[in-house]
Amino acid sequence: MSTSDTSTPPQTTPALKDWPLWEVFVRSKQGLEHKHCGSLHAADAEHALQMARDIYTRRQEGVSIWVVPSAAIVASRPAEKGEFFEPAADKIYRHPTFYDIPDEVGHM
């Protein structure tokens, strides 16, 4: 490899460069919700489903799998965290624990 040009960064392998990213959601039991458990690279939806089966349900973690193109997910921006989430911080009356329950109401 003495002739290789060290000034150019190593190429991403074609497979990972070409295969889009997918988010994987697994339902662990009937009746429970699908939970996000990770992501993977795959060529298409069917391929992503197979790979999710092999990577995320090897130890009987699931009875159902969803895969979603990562690009289809719209996410909040970390830079906007302040305006997005902090206004909720001082509205403690939105928590049920804010209210005193009269003794005669008993257990709710």
Partner: peptide, 12 residues
Amino acid sequence: GPVLEEDLALTN
């Protein structure tokens, strides 16, 4: 394997 995901799939 050619990629991590397929390495796991074939090993399974």
